[in-house]
Simulated assay, not measured.
Amino acid sequence: MDLYDNQKSTSKIKRDASVNDRIPDGLFLACPYCGVQMYNKQLGEHRVCAHCGYGFRLQARERVALLTQSFEEMDSDIEIVAPDFPGYADKLARAKSQTELGESVLTGIATIEDAKVALGIMDSYFMMGSLGSMTGEKITRLFEYATEKKLPVVLFTASGGARMQEGINSLMQMAKVSAAVAQHQEAGLLYLVVLTDPTTGGVTASFAMQGDITLAEPHALVGFAGARVIESTIHEKLPKDFQRVETLLENGFVDKIVPRPELGHVISQLVKLHYRAEA
């Protein structure tokens, strides 16, 4: 290739790069589970991979819009006094702005089809759904209200685990929420968990695994410690679907894997069956 040809080739590369710069972010997506690339419109309103059924992550308010016929939010004004941890206040402000939530869980009273439930939805876009002191407080209040009003609780879990910036206060939420769950169950009321991608750490070690019925979205990652931590501890390569809900289903930790578009109907039917049996 002579100098002239080389210059033509370089200018073509530059033109191609300028075209790429004008392509909006998120126009084409790769499925985090199967790797298939697709135009974002192919996901549909439920944001599900057409190839493998994996559900892309949703914000809590997006899920409310897809799942419920009515929703009355609770404890929307709850605020945390942020501990003096470097950069924490800024991270909280960004999370609130991005999700329009005050904390990493949205709670309220909802109608799913024609079933009335106390609904909680953890939001992975709020600091990776981490379990902070106010997250635990909101979930605890949800269970206490549901116990008082004799309502079933439906909780969608999504979390990276305890929020390290809050230290021991975050870890204490595991016990606090678990106590509220126990009181709700002692009253003979239904607690239904839906595991979504990802549900890990202290959330998995506590209330995510305490439901009377445990559903899950296809291919969601659910576990306690991360796969790399486990591999470095046991010095073995883990199976491909380790910590995926399909493996949990095989081993009895999940009752049913439900595609996202079917969740509303399945939840409403389970609630009706439980309370019809109790009548």
Rank of each mutant, 00 (worst) to 15 (best):
residue 1 M to F: 14
residue 8 K to F: 11
residue 10 T to S: 11
residue 11 S to G: 06
residue 11 S to H: 09
residue 12 K to P: 06
residue 14 K to N: 10
residue 23 I to K: 07
residue 25 D to F: 06
residue 25 D to P: 01
residue 33 Y to R: 04
residue 33 Y to V: 05
residue 38 M to R: 11
residue 43 L to D: 01
residue 45 E to D: 10
residue 46 H to D: 12
residue 54 Y to H: 01
residue 55 G to N: 09
residue 59 Q to I: 07
residue 62 E to V: 03
residue 64 V to I: 15
residue 65 A to E: 15
residue 69 Q to E: 15
residue 71 F to D: 09
residue 75 D to P: 04
residue 75 D to T: 02
residue 75 D to C: 08
residue 76 S to M: 08
residue 79 E to R: 12
residue 80 I to E: 11
residue 83 P to F: 06
residue 87 G to N: 01
residue 87 G to H: 03
residue 88 Y to W: 13
residue 91 K to E: 10
residue 93 A to D: 12
residue 96 K to L: 07
residue 98 Q to M: 10
residue 99 T to S: 13
residue 101 L to T: 02
residue 102 G to Q: 08
residue 102 G to L: 05
residue 104 S to Y: 10
residue 104 S to I: 04
residue 107 T to L: 04
residue 108 G to S: 09
residue 109 I to E: 03
residue 109 I to F: 02
residue 112 I to F: 10
residue 114 D to K: 11
residue 116 K to H: 00
residue 120 G to F: 03
residue 120 G to L: 04
residue 125 Y to Q: 13
residue 126 F to G: 06
residue 126 F to A: 08
residue 127 M to F: 08
residue 127 M to L: 15
residue 128 M to D: 14
residue 130 S to L: 14
residue 134 M to R: 04
residue 137 E to Q: 10
residue 138 K to T: 10
residue 138 K to C: 15
residue 138 K to H: 10
residue 141 R to M: 13
residue 142 L to T: 09
residue 145 Y to A: 03
residue 147 T to E: 13
residue 147 T to I: 08
residue 148 E to G: 03
residue 149 K to N: 13
residue 150 K to R: 12
residue 152 P to I: 00
residue 156 F to E: 00
residue 159 S to N: 09
residue 160 G to A: 12
residue 160 G to R: 02
residue 166 E to W: 09
residue 169 N to H: 12
residue 172 M to G: 05
residue 173 Q to N: 09
residue 173 Q to C: 13
residue 175 A to F: 08
residue 175 A to S: 14
residue 175 A to T: 11
residue 176 K to W: 15
residue 177 V to H: 04
residue 177 V to W: 05
residue 187 A to N: 08
residue 188 G to D: 09
residue 191 Y to S: 02
residue 192 L to H: 05
residue 193 V to N: 01
residue 194 V to H: 01
residue 196 T to P: 06
residue 202 G to D: 01
residue 203 V to R: 01
residue 203 V to F: 08
residue 206 S to F: 07
residue 207 F to L: 11
residue 211 G to A: 07
residue 211 G to E: 01
residue 212 D to F: 05
residue 214 T to W: 02
residue 216 A to K: 00
residue 219 H to N: 05
residue 222 V to G: 00
residue 225 A to E: 12
residue 225 A to T: 07
residue 227 A to Y: 04
residue 228 R to Y: 11
residue 230 I to A: 04
residue 231 E to D: 05
residue 232 S to H: 01
residue 233 T to H: 08
residue 234 I to A: 02
residue 237 K to W: 04
residue 242 F to L: 02
residue 245 V to C: 06
residue 250 E to S: 09
residue 251 N to K: 09
residue 256 K to W: 04
residue 257 I to F: 11
residue 258 V to P: 10
residue 258 V to G: 03
residue 260 R to I: 13
residue 261 P to A: 12
residue 261 P to C: 13
residue 264 G to L: 05
residue 265 H to C: 07
residue 266 V to D: 05
residue 267 I to M: 03
residue 270 L to P: 00
residue 273 L to C: 03
residue 274 H to S: 07
residue 274 H to L: 06
residue 275 Y to T: 00
residue 278 E to A: 14
residue 279 A to V: 02
residue 279 A to M: 05
